[in-house]
Design a binder for these strands. Structure first.
Lengths: 333, 333
DNA sequence: CTGAAAGCGCTAACAG
DNA sequence: CTGTTAGCGCTTTCAG
């Protein structure tokens, strides 16, 4: 049997309340008593039971983090940002993978709520109605990280994806391209349909260029699929040779697909990538890219969550972080 | 106030014990009663409080996972394996980053134990005495994943790193190399000093080749450091042109450093990489490499942990998984 | 098949 | 500055 607060109290000849005060840093304890208690704690190897504490105090100092897939570097970098700030504020993290399946997302939220997390960080390319409904039943704050809420209701931390896409496309247009392939993740996902694609179209229209449906290529978000689909781009009529990808996995997949089949970047194709996670950082040629501050997205989201959990007044719950376009070698100079 | 088991009991005109039985799938409940209770649960939106349950049952169905840095793909892929099996057995995961700092590792183990995790998965390149001592105070099973215990005491899941290093070096020797650079992570870490380096030396000696200290290059484990240190290899007397790296970050860092400075792989340098995580998978030329089954390492470790937590008899607590050497394009054919 | 009752280990008033 | 006393919401005997 593990040693409890009672054992310490008995050993130190004080009440459990006093031990509790010492453990929780309450100042109303005479230094001598404090020392005596601390000694007993040390001697007995007492370790406070966070579960009992959680039950009594109704706070678990634990936050739930739901992520599509932690093995994808975009999410693992975000998660690291979340984790560091969580540590700073002494929260633990319960991490779960949803694979972006709505059913699973709902299950996980339910599950985390059952564990009595004090707050939650949620990541996905889209918020379904079911998820939205589930979140509404929660009595704890939930912050979206790198996740778009088209209804602009939920607290969130993002960059302006539409503007970023617009800027990427414009970059290509400015360097002379008139036909730009938009290699995107599923349009069933808000972030692609309602944001990045909108930016793509806006840039085109603003330049007086036609929106050609055949240049819009919908893929899933996997590297492998993008890799295998290089030829869909290569076989496009009129051979458009500029590509903007909605994320790293797609950009790098296409880049490698093209190169492994004898085509060159940027000579044959110019590519702009989105995100620039560690995965994209190591490929060559280095990718001209929208650099999303992944770590910061996670860190700021967690910081926002701490404020919400503490009941602090937050002036703006929809945080937009800056991004930048970095020119490297996947476009001609 | 959230709805409790009492509310459901009152609503259904049964005792809380009966509600508990229904919730926990105990068969000793008359179908009619069960249905009545289930209806009330549904109607009231009752959600069992896992914290209270944990306190009463002394099981939290939560396991702690301590990882050096989740944003490193090696670890995030291992973590995904752990998470999937955890989900399968209905465990949640508390994930924490240690940055491989002993002090932090000890703190985290203490912290997770306080949270009453039912078991733990631990990852690091070395197990310090402090960590070992801390683990000894735990009354729960702890399994090492991708983490070497030189004392062979703790339950663990690994590949045979020494044999893998031996095989990598032998591969280079067999293709004619006599001077092979060993680009390694810190030798303060067991996995490098007591295992991979041992394999390197064994291969050399077996081939009657001298062990040249100057060819053994100690780096930290970061991509950036390796990238910046390409010249240490390029400037080596006699220009050895075969390299074996102890992990992906080092291999890819050196590869890119070399290439960005006008050298070619495999023409100027032949490289064998270790791990082959997603990060290594996307670089070109594709790396001839020791392929470590990352996901499986995590999955098997978690499976082992479930057995240990269930008190099942385990025939072998030191699991060694197979690895393979895959030939690709960072060596001449 | 069901209910009563005793905790699990700790926090948080409330007294003193 | 310290002790007493209720719970927190649930599991788990033990009876019946």
């Amino acid at each position: 049997m593990a040693v409890t607060i009672y054992d310490v109290a008995r050993e130190a000849n004080v009440s459990m309340a006093t031990v509790s005060r010492v453990v929780n840093g309450n100042q109303n304890v005479k230094p001598a008593t404090r020392k005596k208690v601390l000694d007993c704690i040390e001697r007995l190897g007492y370790r406070p039971n966070a579960v009992a504490r959680g039950l009594a105090s109704k706070k678990t100092t634990t936050v739930g983090v739901i992520v599509p897939d932690i093995s994808i570097s975009f999410y693992s970098e975000l998660a690291r940002g979340v984790a560091d700030i969580a540590t700073m504020y002494e929260y633990n993290i319960i991490l779960s993978n949803s694979d972006e399946r709505t059913v699973r997302e709902v299950e996980l939220i339910e599950d985390h709520l059952g564990k009595q997390v004090d707050g939650m960080i949620f990541m996905s390319d889209s918020i379904s109605d079911e998820v939205r409904k589930e979140m509404a039943t929660a009595n704890i704050p939930i912050v979206l990280a790198g996740t778009l809420d088209v209804e602009k209701q939920l607290p969130s931390v993002n960059i302006d994806y539409e503007e970023a896409a617009y800027m990427a496309v414009k970059k290509l247009i400015d360097s002379g391209h008139k036909r730009i392939v938009f290699a995107s993740g599923p349009f069933t996902r808000d972030i692609n349909r309602a944001s990045k694609k909108v930016g793509y179209i806006r840039a085109l229209e603003e330049a007086g260029l036609p929106v050609e449906e055949e240049l819009i290529i919908e893929l899933d978000n996997s590297y492998d699929t993008a890799y295998q689909n290089w030829h869909r781009i290569a076989e496009l009529p009129g051979k458009p040779n500029a590509i903007v990808a909605t994320n790293d996995r797609i950009a790098v997949g296409i880049l490698n697909g093209l190169r492994d089949n004898g085509l060159s970047v940027p000579e044959d194709y110019e590519i702009i990538c989105f995100e620039h996670s560690n995965m994209a950082r190591v490929v060559r040629p280095q990718l001209t890219s929208i650099v999303v501050p992944l770590y910061d997205l996670g860190a700021v989201a967690m910081r926002l969550l701490t404020k919400l959990m503490d009941g602090e007044e937050v002036s703006e719950e929809q945080v937009i972080l800056p991004f930048r376009l970095e020119e490297r070698d996947s476009m001609k100079k």
